[in-house]
Nucleic acid binder design. Structure first.
Length: 436
RNA sequence: GGCGGGUUACCCAAGCGGCCAAAGGGAUCUGACUGUAAAUCAGCUGGCUCUGCCUACGUAGGUUCGAAUCCUGCACCCGCCA
């Protein structure tokens, strides 16, 4: 079960490609774009300044944002100069979602999230050297904008017909939810961001998710109108699972990059459970493995899928990228210990203890009902759900199935180190510390 | 501003005075199978001190022995008209 430690892939571009654009295309990171040949040429002529915006709609970025961060990073590794825009202003307005109007967050809340997201973003892009990351906040130029300025200097360049035709807006108009004027105006603010960054910093490329395409083009159009200059935009595809479910969710919850919100263990498990049909695509998008290395892993998926070599590598690489190599190695060891088929009591107590520390857990006392302890660990939402799970034969203590919903925690369940391992279903684990 | 329609559990959506913790579908979860997969089949899915009790059908009141269902105010959404 324990294999030779795999060495992590260094962050680099794959020099088997002529242009970074070719590598991005191979990795499936470009689904829509302005003239790619023009972009290739611009990139060949020297460092390009480029940006991607992150709106503070929560206190942490999630996997969808990670795609963008990696896109920024790859362009940076190719010698270009990244700008990360934190949407202190646009976060107060709200980008129209296709389904429903957003609830406005308070200014204090948004300001707090701006700080946290700024910190997260900075961690992924080197801030030293000639092409160090620049972080900007669109509140700096949006807040001073008066209604008069907004309407005269910006509004005149936008035709309502075109604004209505933008997909995000059109969808909302077709839906029962409709759209507020506030959200309708969002695209103008984002277009202005690109214009401001072009004027102030010479930024000529914006990247974003495909769902942002309307907004990206809005900026390109505005700059063409106002400055008579052609700039570039790249939209990356929405990552989807081959089975049609949403990528980046586990039991309906988003996978966050903040370890407080999604533990490194849960993060690693998420990636480890990637389906065969998706794993190669994930390796391309989320790791710095080269084309040759990924092709080798693809061969292994095809020939010996049960080994899940590609999933293991993917999970290790992405966990290390987000949580650091030490944390990643720890959760790998924990996973191997807990999912091994050996007797838990035969494991080295220190290893077992460390493994259990990676899991969600709780304290409990002998005699406590197992259903309640399970609920306390958070792997089920309530005692009722725990009882139900036990009734369905889906709960195990130390890998032994529990059948009685009224069962209690007994002394013979306690493993060396005063721990008990609870499991719900095939793969949801929790650790319990027994004591009074 | 006027008129009309709407707000149901994670999502969509039935219900229109008691038989409603609320049909149906989706999704999640569990079991069998397996590779901590996929596909397939089956089952569960408000909470609790669980043969009962407590919350819940936008929100605050009211009518009634009894309301998701009737009435009134309020909030929000949609459409048409101005």
């Amino acid at each position: 079960m324990t294999e030779n430690p795999i060495e992590l892939a260094p962050q680099r571009i794959d020099d088997s490609f002529d242009s970074i654009v070719d590598e991005l295309q191979w990795r499936g990171l470009i689904s829509v774009s302005t003239d790619l040949d023009a972009l290739r040429q611009a990139l060949a002529e020297g460092p390009v300044r480029y940006y991607c915006g992150f709106d503070p709609t929560a206190g942490s970025l999630h996997l969808g944002h990670l795609v963008q961060l990696l896109l920024l990073r790859r362009l940076q590794l190719a010698g270009n100069i990244p700008y990360a825009l934190v949407g202190g202003a646009t976060g107060l307005i709200g980008d129209p979602r296709p389904t429903a109007e957003r609830t406005l967050n308070s200014r204090d809340q948004v300001a707090e999230w701006v700080v946290r997201i700024r910190d997260q973003v900075s961690g992924y892009l080197g801030d030293e050297g000639e092409n160090a990351l620049h972080v900007v906040d669109n509140l700096d130029w949006t807040a001073p904008l008066s209604a008069i300025d907004f309407l005269r200097d910006l509004g005149k360049h936008f035709r309502v017909g075109q604004m209505l035709a933008k997909e995000a807006v059109a969808k909302r108009l077709r839906s029962e939810a409709g759209i507020s004027y506030t959200e309708f105006s969002y695209q103008i603010l984002q277009a202005n961001d690109f214009l401001q960054l072009y004027r102030r910093e010479g930024v000529t490329l914006q990247t974003g998710g495909q769902d942002q395409w309307g907004n990206l083009v809005g900026g390109v159009d505005l700059i063409r109108r106002v400055e008579q200059v052609g700039v570039h935009a790249i939209g990356s595809p929405l990552i989807t699972n081959s089975d049609g479910t949403k990528f980046g969710k586990s039991e309906g919850n988003a996978i966050w990059i903040d370890p407080e919100l999604t533990s490194p263990y849960a993060f690693y498990q998420f990636w480890l459970n990637t389906e065969d049909a998706d794993v190669v695509e994930r390796l391309k998008v989320f790791t710095f493995l080269t084309r040759a290395e990924i092709e080798e892993l693809a061969r292994q998926v095809a020939e010996e899928p049960y080994r899940r070599a590609a999933q293991r590598r993917l999970a290790l690489e992405v966990t290390a990228l987000v949580h650091g190599e030490t944390a990643a190695r720890n959760v790998v060891r924990a996973s191997e210990a807990l999912f091994g088929d050996g007797d838990l009591r035969a494991l080295d107590p220190a290893t077992l203890g460390q493994a259990l520390d990676e899991l969600p857990g709780t304290g409990a006392a002998l005699g406590d009902p197992i259903a309640r302890v399970l609920a306390d660990t958070g792997v089920v939402r309530s005692v009722s759900e725990a009882r139900r799970a036990i009734g369905q034969g889906g709960v195990y203590v130390d890998n032994v199935r529990v059948t009685d919903p009224e069962a209690t925690l007994d002394a013979d369940m306690v493993l060396p180190g005063g721990r008990v391992l609870l499991r719900r279903g095939r793969r949801t684990l929790a650790g319990v510390r027994v004591g009074d």
